[in-house]
Structures are given as C-alpha cells and as structure tokens.
Simulated scan of single mutants.
Amino acid sequence: MLTNKQKRFLRGEAHHIKPIFQVGKAGVNENLVKQVAEALEARELIKVSILQNCDEDREDVALRVAKGAKAEVVQVIGKTIIFYKESKENKKIELP
C-alpha cells in the first residue's frame, strides 16, 4: 500500500508520461491486464486512458486492472489512470 507522500511523488513522476494503453468498448479483458502487467514490470509507472466508448465506470476499470496486474492505483483523474508496481528486475524509481 502506498502512502500519500509516495502517491504525491509518483503523480509528479507520471506528469510527463503519455498513456500507453487505452480501454475502449471491449472494456477490461485478460489480454489488457496481461499487457499492463508486462509494461509495469518494464517501466514501473504507466498511464492508461479510458476512451469515450468504454461503458465501464473508470473506478471499476482502475480496480480490475490493478487487481489483475497486482499493481497500485496512484490516481484516477478524468479519463486517465496512473498505475505503479515495483519492478523485480528493472528497479528505476526510488520511493520516498
């Protein structure tokens, strides 16, 4: 579980990152969760955007992806979700 200080730090780190995944009409599926997990292992911090044609609630999308990828939801802002997961092999981010 991330502390508020760690979340604030990660939000700052994620500010300039572009979303690398989009959740659309199909919603959250196994393939998306698997790809997010792989991206988190490589990058530790990613953004996912939710398209307008997605019928699912953004909070539900965040929770389902986080649970499936065993990641932390840093922030849900608008149609963008920031995820963090400490990498086992490519550790880049030092949390305060």
Rank of each mutant, 00 (worst) to 15 (best):
G27S: 04
A71E: 00
K7Q: 10
V65T: 07
T80C: 09
N29K: 11
A26N: 14
V76R: 10
A69Q: 03
E72W: 04
E41T: 05
L40Y: 11
I17H: 07
G24T: 01
K79Y: 00
F9Q: 14
G78K: 04
C54V: 00
A37D: 10
E44A: 09
L95C: 07
K34F: 12
E56D: 15
Q22H: 09
I82S: 12
A71F: 03
K25A: 15
V28S: 05
R64Q: 14
S87N: 09
S87L: 04
N90D: 12
V23G: 05
L2D: 04
Q52S: 13
A69D: 03
F83K: 02
P96L: 15
V73N: 07
Q35K: 13
A39V: 04
K85H: 12
R43C: 08
K7L: 08
V28P: 05
E56G: 00
K67Q: 12
V33W: 06
N31A: 02
L45Q: 06
G27H: 04
R43W: 09
E13W: 00
E59G: 02
E44S: 05
A62P: 11
A37E: 10
F83Y: 14
I50C: 10
L51M: 11
L2C: 08
A14N: 09
V36Y: 02
V28C: 07
E89F: 11
V74S: 04
R43N: 15
V36D: 06
A66P: 05
L95F: 11
A62H: 07
K70D: 04
I77W: 06
K92Y: 05
S49Y: 08
K88W: 09
I81H: 00
V23A: 08
L2H: 02
K92F: 08
L63D: 10
K34Y: 09
E56S: 12
E59K: 14
N4C: 03
V48H: 08
T80F: 09
G27P: 08
K7V: 10
L45S: 10
N29F: 06
L32T: 00
D55S: 14
N29T: 01
Q6M: 13
L95T: 14
K79G: 14
V36P: 02
L45A: 10
E72F: 09
V61L: 06
V73Q: 01
E86D: 06
F9M: 10
L51F: 07
N90S: 09
F21Y: 13
E89G: 07
V74Q: 01
E72P: 08
V76S: 08
Y84W: 13
K67R: 13
R11V: 10
V61Q: 02
L2E: 07
K47Q: 15
L10N: 02
E59R: 13
S49M: 15
V33L: 03
G24V: 01
H16M: 03
P19R: 01
G68P: 03
I20S: 12
E38A: 15
N90E: 12
P19V: 06
E56Q: 14
G12E: 11
V65R: 02
L45H: 11
I77F: 10
K79C: 01
A66Q: 03
E86F: 04
H16S: 15
E72H: 13
T3V: 03
V28D: 02
I20C: 14
I81S: 10
E41V: 04
N53S: 15
F83D: 06
Q75W: 00
F83E: 04
C54P: 11
Q52K: 12
